[in-house]
Amino acid sequence: MRQLLRIEHLVAVAAVANGTVTKIVPFGVFVRLAPGVKGLLHVSDMASSSVASPDRVVRLALRRGF
Rank of each mutant, 00 (worst) to 15 (best):
R2T: 10
R2C: 06
R2G: 05
R2F: 10
Q3C: 14
L4S: 11
L4D: 05
L4M: 13
L5E: 08
L5D: 10
L5S: 14
L5Q: 10
L5I: 13
I7K: 08
I7Q: 10
E8H: 12
E8D: 08
E8S: 13
H9I: 06
H9S: 13
H9W: 06
L10M: 14
V11K: 01
V11G: 03
V11R: 02
A12P: 11
V13W: 03
V13P: 09
V13Q: 03
A14T: 07
A14P: 08
A14Y: 03
A14E: 06
A15Q: 14
V16Y: 15
V16E: 08
A17V: 07
A17R: 04
N18D: 09
N18L: 15
N18K: 08
G19R: 00
T22R: 15
T22I: 12
K23F: 15
K23L: 11
I24V: 05
I24Q: 00
I24Y: 00
P26K: 14
F27Y: 07
G28A: 05
G28E: 01
V29N: 00
F30L: 12
V31M: 03
V31G: 00
A34M: 11
A34Q: 09
A34P: 04
P35V: 12
P35I: 12
G36V: 05
V37A: 07
V37T: 11
V37R: 02
K38H: 11
K38Y: 03
K38W: 00
K38S: 15
K38F: 01
G39Q: 02
G39P: 00
G39S: 11
L41T: 03
L41Y: 04
L41D: 03
L41C: 14
L41G: 03
L41F: 09
H42A: 09
H42E: 05
H42V: 07
V43N: 01
V43Y: 01
S44D: 07
S44K: 06
D45K: 11
D45A: 05
M46V: 04
M46W: 04
M46Y: 05
A47N: 05
A47F: 03
A47H: 04
A47E: 02
S48D: 08
S48F: 01
S48L: 09
S49Y: 15
S49M: 09
S49I: 11
S49A: 13
S49V: 11
S49C: 11
S50C: 13
V51W: 02
A52D: 06
S53T: 09
S53A: 10
P54D: 01
P54I: 02
D55I: 05
D55E: 06
R56L: 15
R56G: 15
V57W: 00
V57C: 07
V58H: 00
R59C: 14
L60P: 12
L60K: 05
L60N: 08
A61T: 09
A61V: 06
A61Q: 11
A61P: 00
L62W: 05
R63I: 12
R63S: 13
R64N: 09
R64C: 12
G65V: 13
G65F: 13
F66L: 13
F66W: 11
F66S: 02
F66Q: 03
F66N: 00
F66P: 01
